[in-house]
């Protein structure tokens, strides 16, 4: 007992004040990119051709954050002249097209569905399905339950059964072998229900695009309400998106 108490004192109180106070992530973290629209064409083209995810549109000078894995290659290649990644982790969007960004993302809170806020604003129970996810997005969703983030204080929980859920959170590029199980889980959730796609894989196929074994985009199977980009998305990106969309 004494040992338990000693540890309790040593550990202290660790839960973040976010969203009441802001959190500044470390410099090397790569969140929302800023794009210089008058960057020289040759640099833009070079970035577009070297991008491992082919996520850059050189004509429009936009990046598809649904495909981007935030490796930061374009920032390094252009030496910041075309792209710089900021530490702004609030990159979730409610519309897929918003992720094709020139550096600006609309405020997520302005694009959420009013009836979702009314229905789920005080209590949101989510069923997570990993559909061929690599366990990175899953891990960074799981940590929301740890004391630092403490998702439960916002009335949001991950539940064990789709029958107890208000919505589904999908990670992974939806392999051929997981498609049926995913759709059955979706069916099992009572209406009205929300669908959240987390990570580059669920949004676009991510690193696995081109493989005949996967699906390039959850929204080709079921309608998606909330897109949270990243590889994986940072826990704060997940938290920011959930709070702004539902609260």
């Amino acid at each position: 007992m004494l040992n338990t108490l000693k540890n309790r004192f040593e550990q202290g109180y660790k839960t973040t004040d976010y969203p009441k106070t802001d959190i500044q992530l470390v410099d090397r973290y790569r969140g929302r990119p800023e794009i210089t629209q008058d960057a020289p064409d040759d640099i833009v083209k070079m970035c577009a051709s070297e991008c491992p995810q082919d996520a850059i549109d050189a004509e429009k000078k936009t990046i598809d954050l649904g495909r981007c894995v935030f490796c930061g290659g374009c920032e390094r290649l252009s030496d910041g002249k075309f792209v710089t990644f900021t530490t702004d982790f609030g990159t979730g969007t409610s519309i897929r097209e918003h992720l094709f960004t020139d550096g600006n993302l609309p405020a997520l809170a302005d694009h959420s569905k009013k009836h979702f806020k009314k229905l789920f604003g005080r209590s949101l129970q989510l069923r997570q399905v990993s559909a061929a996810g690599c366990n990175a997005c899953e891990a960074d969703l799981n940590v929301l339950a740890t004391p630092f983030f403490d998702l439960g204080r916002f009335g949001i929980n991950f539940v064990a059964s789709p029958r107890h859920a208000d919505g589904i959170v999908v990670t992974g590029p939806i392999s051929r072998n997981m498609k049926t199980a995913l759709l059955q889980t979706f069916e099992a959730i009572p209406d009205p229900k929300v669908v959240i796609a987390v990570g580059s894989c669920a949004i676009s196929g991510g690193p696995f695009r081109g493989s005949p074994e996967i699906t390039e985009g959850l929204d080709s199977l079921i309608p998606v309400d909330l897109y949270i980009p990243g590889c994986p998305s940072h826990p704060l990106t997940n938290l920011h998106a959930l709070l702004n969309y539902f609260k």
Binding site: E50, C51, P52, Q53, S130, A132, G133, G172, P173, S175, R176, N177, M178, A181, P207, F208, G210, S211, P212, E213, I214
Partner: peptide, 19 residues
Amino acid sequence: LGYQHRGIENLLTNVDSKR
């Protein structure tokens, strides 16, 4: 198992080295 199969070994023989 097998539900997570993404065809990685074959994908790696078919893609640009940048990927």
